[in-house]
Amino acid sequence: MGERTAAASGGPGSRGAAGSLHTPVLAEECVRLIAPAVTGREAVMIDATVGMGGHAEAFLERFPGLTVIGIDRDGQAIEIARERLSRFGARFAAVHATYDAVASVAADRGREGRVDAVLMDLGVSSLQLDRDERGFSYSRDAPLDMRMDRARGRTAADVLAGEPAGELERMLREYGEERFAARIASGIVRARERAPVVRTGQLARIVRESIPAPARRSGGNPCKRTFQALRIAVNDELAVLERAVPRAVEAIAVGGRIAVESYHSLEDRIVKREFAKGAASSSPAGLPVELEGHEPYLRLLTRGAVKATAQEAAANPRSASVRLRAAEKLRTITHNATTS
């Protein structure tokens, strides 16, 4: 996971490429929302989806007393972030893990087991989308991989080969909100009986052939929802997020802040639910007083979700769907999450 960014060129190992790969989405808004928790003192922030380091760089430049711990499951992204942020020395450290490890990272790297802020920029990154060999894009033919951590797990081709039609339909319907899920799942099963579906071009062709012609002519590329669903399934993204948000809240010290950027409704729904739970009293309804320990433990910092401006969306098309929510930790909690 990691930053939504503008398209880039250059090799993954060069300082020039690492330094000019992208512009992080809503960086100034993220800085503004988190600033009160990290300004004017020694502070620790976890960038739980560090990607290529764009958001981390913005924070390290702005707050000289800040240390950033970057988490990412993508080993290639970790290498680029380390190189890009090497000028900050010990103020940046990287951890190769999924972001639901945020609480254990805070326990190991934070002050007294807590950090002052957590930032999450969810979804697929520019690094993953723009490298053909990663297999995330439906616009270029490539091997169907889609793993964010290429060292482990099933590839997208493995999922298409091994799952029955009913499970494929469920994935497409739940993770892609695809109304033609049954037709596409049937198309995949018929195609794999003839030959393994192992390339993005094959899958894109199956999707287009499965969807009625009028639907193909409206609503953007008809492959978008299927590719999103398959990527989420391959990386178990929603389950990881459901674990990560409460663990991140638990990892923040009182007065600390969390900001989360989501890019589709399934992600945003999880973040919204967890923030709303923390911002509400858990005392039984109808009591005349607030029970101790049942007060809200979060204060919402955004009214609804912050979206990219038209200017930012024009400059960086991948920011068009962003939804940013943030909250402040009001009190210590022990029941909200378990550490990873």
Rank of each mutant, 00 (worst) to 15 (best):
E3K: 01
A6N: 09
S9H: 11
G13P: 10
H22I: 01
T23P: 03
V25G: 01
L26Y: 08
R32F: 01
R32I: 02
I34C: 04
A35C: 12
A37I: 04
G40F: 03
R41F: 02
E42P: 10
M45D: 05
M45F: 01
M45L: 15
I46F: 08
G54W: 02
F59I: 05
F59A: 05
G65W: 04
G65T: 08
G70T: 03
R73C: 07
A90Q: 01
V95S: 05
A97S: 15
Y99Q: 02
S104R: 14
R109A: 14
G113H: 02
G113V: 02
V124A: 14
L127E: 07
L129K: 09
R134E: 01
G135H: 09
F136N: 07
F136A: 11
Y138S: 11
R140P: 06
R140Y: 03
D141C: 09
A142K: 12
P143R: 03
R147T: 01
A151F: 00
R152W: 00
R152V: 03
R154G: 07
T155H: 12
V159A: 13
A161W: 00
A161D: 07
E163M: 14
E163A: 13
E163V: 11
P164N: 09
P164L: 07
P164A: 09
R173D: 08
Y175L: 11
G176K: 02
R179L: 11
F180T: 08
A181C: 04
I184L: 06
A185K: 12
A191T: 02
A195V: 03
A204V: 01
R208K: 14
S210G: 10
I211F: 07
I211D: 15
A213T: 13
A215L: 01
R216K: 06
R217Y: 00
R217S: 11
S218G: 00
K224T: 13
K224Q: 08
R225L: 09
F227G: 04
F227R: 01
A229W: 04
N235L: 09
E237I: 06
L238M: 14
A239L: 02
A239R: 04
E242C: 06
R243T: 10
P246T: 08
R247P: 13
A253Q: 14
A253T: 15
G256K: 03
G256C: 03
R257W: 09
V260M: 08
E261T: 06
E261R: 09
H264N: 12
L266W: 07
L266G: 07
R269T: 13
I270E: 12
V271T: 11
R273D: 14
E274Y: 00
E274L: 10
A276T: 03
K277G: 06
A279C: 04
S281A: 08
G286P: 12
P288V: 10
P288I: 10
V289M: 13
E290T: 09
E290H: 08
G293K: 06
G293W: 02
E295W: 05
L298N: 00
L301T: 05
T302D: 12
G304P: 12
T309L: 07
Q311P: 03
Q311E: 15
E312L: 10
N316V: 09
R318A: 10
R318C: 11
V322A: 15
R323V: 03
L324R: 08
A326G: 09
A327Y: 06
L330D: 12
T334I: 00
H335D: 11
T338C: 09
S340C: 14
